[in-house]
Nucleic acid binder design. Structure first.
Lengths: 334, 334
DNA sequence: AATAACAATTGAACTGGTTCAATCTTTTTT
DNA sequence: AAAAAAGATTGAACCAGTTCAATTGTTATT
């Protein structure tokens, strides 16, 4: 049978309350502290995290809900979240909801029943109404990546519009005028923001926003592939292409290779989040990199802070900057 | 304050033991069953899963340890595992260990401290010795995908050698003789098995196994890209290429496109796990598909069975068959 | 030195379930 | 119809912690 706090108390010659206080970081008389520490050592005592949760209503668990397990961008952030919260002995329960609102609600209930101490939500296309219940329960929530406008809580977002702006600006400074974009799904906030930045950049330089340069790729590899093909099989061919996420960039590059279009001679390209590969292929790709580690770290620390009851600065909205990694895929037209 | 089992008992006019028995699926006298059900309804009672775990030493939680969150093959299986176990109200705690043995041990301890009822291990390169402790604890373990030879427990594996055999055989039947392979890391069991099948097929047809047709890509996109490039920049150029996982297939296709090698005219290609995209690109790719959903389902059901104490057939070793999806990337040499 | 203020300790009561020996009901057997 | 066997119910004890009012110990103040 497991060693309990009572065994430790007996061995150390103090009351179980004293041991409990020690374990929770309260001050003990020096003499008692040493006795307790010795007893814990000798008995090999380990706290039972489940029993702990019963009275205190703490599960030492954080629910993380993502749209899709197989999205490498999300899972990169989750890795960082995990690394952050495990330092304080929290674990995460990871759920995906496959973009299905009903399934999401089901998962949120599931997490509530397990008394998660906090919730981190990758909120692709979530309706506000579902979340209201959660607020009432008093569980802190941090939203990551996809915003739910109007939902008042802590958020860790990326400056998507700014990222797009600088990408398109780079094309403009390189004298491109036929600048195409492959968008994500129109109902995604991230997608909207990235398109917004594209528009703003064109408008800032008095250039028209033309529908022939705009296609949608649904944030998928296949979507990016098909959208790129459409661009280059049509009558109007762009000289610059901005692809607004990782998977679509992958697909677009495949299409471009397949059609034997020379980058950057015939087409200048800026992609998104293209990880290691973008540096290896020829020509190496200029991409916009999102700070996934940092996002996870901030989200993790933020939820820990709220769990501790520290609500200073609430609601914190972090809007992280992206980095454009300039490589060889953009040509300056002279 | 939450509604407890005592509240239900009082409302229904029975003892709390009776309510507990009802909740755990034991038989009640019809009359009492109705009263209890009514009381639960009226009060909106929900079981406290944490309290439940305290006495019974059950956490209703299954630990899933994977090498890397960002591996789409693993996460596809995890999705299926989750779907399976959530039906019986289990949740999973997902951990990755980034291929680091020390980190793995740490995660296993972490999961033990949380009283996971079972463990599903994606065991890339795990030493046997670490696992021995876990067996002693009496926690059921299911190994998925990567075998640990000599570790006696339930396993859900894929017939990797057979998959390779049939891929290479297809090349041979199409009169190819220069058949190259891009392997994963040599210390991976999966990688070894896939190579084994390649060898067996060549030997079965009295063909030599030549080192010039063997390269290693470390199961990564970049690795596959670089290995493919090496093949086609060298003096000897293969007419057939077999790539042994998803990420390397991706990289190899990019390299092939980049070098403007025509598939299947100049090169026949069989890849692995290439998901939707393999059907879309031109030419569409012949690939070996692994049954990820089925793997997850079997692993999930197996661990549930063991958790329930049903050890019939122990140890079960499932060796699932792959499916070759024949498309347009293999040419018959006449 | 006496008193007040503060700090540390104690242990019973509590958290919300499960379990089981004892007891009460019902059904089956003789 | 009585006795035996099987089935259902009861509630106190238990799981391993936390919490808090009461108590004891220590330091500061007058």
């Amino acid at each position: 049978m497991a060693v309990t706090i009572r065994d430790v108390a007996k061995r150390a010659g103090v009351s179980l309350g004293t041991v409990s206080r020690y374990l929770n970081g309260y001050r003990l008389r020096e003499e008692n502290r040493l006795k307790v520490e010795k007893a814990i050592q000798e008995l090999g005592f380990k706290q039972n995290i489940i029993a702990k949760g019963l009275k205190s209503n703490r599960s030492m668990t954080i629910g993380v809900v993502i749209d899709d397990f197989t999205n490498i961008f999300c899972t990169s952030i989750v890795t960082a979240i995990e690394r952050t919260v495990e330092k304080e002995n929290y674990s995460i329960i990871l759920c995906d909801y496959e973009g299905d609102t009903e399934k999401l609600e089901q998962k949120l209930n599931f997490l509530r029943d397990r008394f998660v101490d906090g919730l981190i939500l990758f909120s692709n296309n979530v309706r506000l109404s579902i979340m209201d219940k959660y607020i009432c329960e008093g569980i802190p929530i941090v939203i990551v990546n996809e915003d739910i406008p109007g939902f008042n809580t802590d958020k860790v977002l990326v400056d998507n519009a700014g990222a797009s702006f600088r990408a398109v600006e780079r094309f403009i400074h390189s004298n491109h005028t036929k600048i195409a974009i492959i968008n994500g799904p129109p109902n995604s906030w991230v997608s909207q923001q990235r398109f917004e930045g594209y528009k703003q950049a064109l408008e800032a330089y008095n250039m028209p926003v033309e529908s022939r340069w705009i296609k949608y790729g649904n944030f998928t590899t296949v979507g990016g592939y098909l959208a790129a093909k459409e661009f280059f099989e049509g009558p109007d061919i762009p000289t610059a292409l901005y692809v607004t996420n990782y998977y679509m960039t992958l697909g677009a590059v495949m299409a471009i290779h397949e059609l034997n279009i020379k980058v950057p001679q015939e087409l200048s390209l800026i992609g998104f989040d293209y990880f290691e590969l973008s540096d290896v292929i020829k020509p190496s790709l200029t991409v916009i990199e999102q700070p996934t580690s940092k996002m996870g770290e901030i989200a993790g620390n933020l939820i820990l802070k709220r769990i501790k009851g520290d609500y200073t600065g609430y609601p914190e909205v972090h809007r992280l900057h992206t980095r454009m990694i300039v490589r060889d895929s953009v040509r300056v037209i002279s």
